[in-house]
Design a binder for these strands. Structure first.
Lengths: 202, 202, 202, 202
DNA sequence: AATGAATGAGAGTTCATTCAT
DNA sequence: TATGAATGAACTCTCATTCAT
């Protein structure tokens, strides 16, 4: 995909680099300070560019926020997909996906911290994020049911239930504890829950 | 409990009324606009008092935010406890508690919308809220286990998992759909999940 | 007329004083620097108030500009009317009106300097100013004709012609020369022209 | 006259073309938006050249403004001279000159709109414009007097009076009405006034 | 207990100008 | 001769907080 500047022009490779620096800086600054305390100056300083440069790539603070949400969303889904593809059974796949999610969380605290702000900053991106993420769960659950590895469950509701578990458990044991991984006992319990939620028939 | 003003003095009954009006107004304004777009002027206008009056009761914008979180937290826990006390079995109790939670959510959208802002506005209140809420779940789960109505589960992890489900399902089907109740199929599926999470032995 | 703040509230006498200080400061700053180089900070500094205070009385830079135009317009018309009332004949009245106009010009260079900017800053005030000013001329000319002291002239066209003369002669010999009065020879010539423009019959 | 770039070098014919395109674009953009809202980007976009190209021909925004004023001034004087040369008598010549002025005004609204901005943008060009324009009037009036076609008038004062009439009448009936010509009644009245201002002896 | 005028730091954003290509 | 990415000073405007009344 060719990246574009704030005025719609296609970016040179130098432009892409600058834009990338800004997104990276924004991830950091938003994660540290939150949307409101993160100022354009702080972002451009962190990116090592001038204030005006920002507006060559994004037309407003909200725009880089939205872009960042899209970016993080794409990456977390990618990481989860990659990981779950390694699983032999559906259950394994699901648990590996969760693990990837927690790993991503620990490396990109921005994801959590930013999404929760989107409520007022950019409601459309809040929906976008959860909808996209839930799609991944739904697909996996449908396949599992089709393959006879999960019971007659409602994939959508179950997807949101699983997302919710992941979200709060990630917040509690990854973010708050500043850990890279869940404690053993949490992993075990989570496995139990996921197993019974999938409820393989018989 | 005797309420106090910003300077620690005990409030007259007139004072209590004014303070109450401010908290109510804050709930509305924070819920509608979010913490940052909610200005003190808008809160005082909504409360029908002068700007300066605000500082007789709260020493800062953050203080009324914290107070409001405490208030909502107290009320939602109360509502859940009341409801679950009506349940004959633990499962029933749990489901009634959830129902009360969703009802409260629909009547006080501020709860969701404010909590999600707390990440940066007042991290300590974020913890406070989820910790207190999870305690209710933990207690119930422990009792259930003791009564033989739940399996050998880890109550803390399970509590956070249940909170997470409630949070995202409430967001998806109550808040986003602007409904007072969950759709039938969601209730059914949720019941299935909760039942298996409790995993009554045998 | 009761003065109002930016939010429509009626001003206390203290408020009126502050507002007056701002208008005075704006006249000075606009006259010295022009609309675009005049910043809110410079105006508030000149008025001796804080930056935020400005917005209690005017909602934008343009609003104080418009108000100032209205104010100057009112005053220059008043000055001209007062002066011309002293004239015995219509010709005398007209000349005294002109003299008052030039005097006002020398004391309020803002009038000239600002009006010429209104073209883009506030076109509606540009019209307002010239329309209102021309009305004064038109009335006087109609009365003169009715009284047999002026010929069968088209009062509107003549009014704009007289305004134009006044404007450029004032610019050339008052503003550019930084004089309080026109040189004798200019006065004489102007008298000749006005006399023949009025063209008393016979 | 050989045209020069911003650094004083003599322009190639290609360079002259580019420079011409910039001046044309500037006339349009300044006329539409005024000096301050007209940005270099908008001018270069309208001219179809890159931003940096601008500075090969003009060293600043003000410089192209000054150049444009000179250009318009030259052209309006030329148009007036051409036209008045067709007149048999001085009066006819004067009226034809006026007509040409109004025609030019309708075709180059930039003249008015730009000049009125010069007050603060470039005071020296404001003087330049009116001085040069008045010279034309003065010469004509002197010739008329010498030829016995005008009375013993003060040519300079009369020149500025005539310029003023033309300016406001042009603004009122050409610019504001967006007409190409003055209405008949205005022409008639203007003729009356000019005739009496020239005051041919006898 | 209540008021609201006043404050000023700091926000997002624009744009004339420079310069490496 | 031409380009356009980069700059940063300066702008308008907001709002939590103070304080004299």
């Amino acid at each position: 995909m060719t990246l574009k500047g704030a005025d719609g022009r296609i970016l040179s490779s130098k432009g892409e680099r600058t834009r990338g620096r800004l997104i990276e800086a924004a991830e950091q600054v938003f994660a540290d300070l939150g949307y409101h305390d993160a100022s354009i100056v702080k972002i451009t300083e962190a990116a090592g560019v001038g204030q005006g440069t920002f507006y060559l790539y994004f037309s407003s603070k909200k725009e880089i926020f939205d872009e960042l949400v899209r970016d993080l969303n794409r990456r977390v889904r990618h990481a989860m997909k990659e990981a779950s593809a390694q699983g032999g059974t559906r259950l394994e796949a699901e648990l590996l996906g969760f693990a990837a999610y927690f790993r991503f969380t620990s490396e990109h605290t921005a994801l959590y911290r930013i999404i929760r702000q989107a409520e007022f900053v950019s409601p459309e991106m809040l929906h976008y994020h959860y909808d996209r993420l839930s799609e991944g769960y739904v697909e996996a659950l449908q396949e599992a049911t089709a393959a006879g590895e999960a019971g007659a469950i409602d994939p959508e509701v179950t997807a949101w239930a699983l997302m919710g578990m992941g979200e709060l458990i990630g917040m509690r044991w990854i973010l708050w504890n500043e850990q890279r991984e869940l404690p053993r006992r949490v992993v075990n319990e989570l496995e139990r829950i996921v197993r019974c939620v999938l409820e393989p028939p018989g």
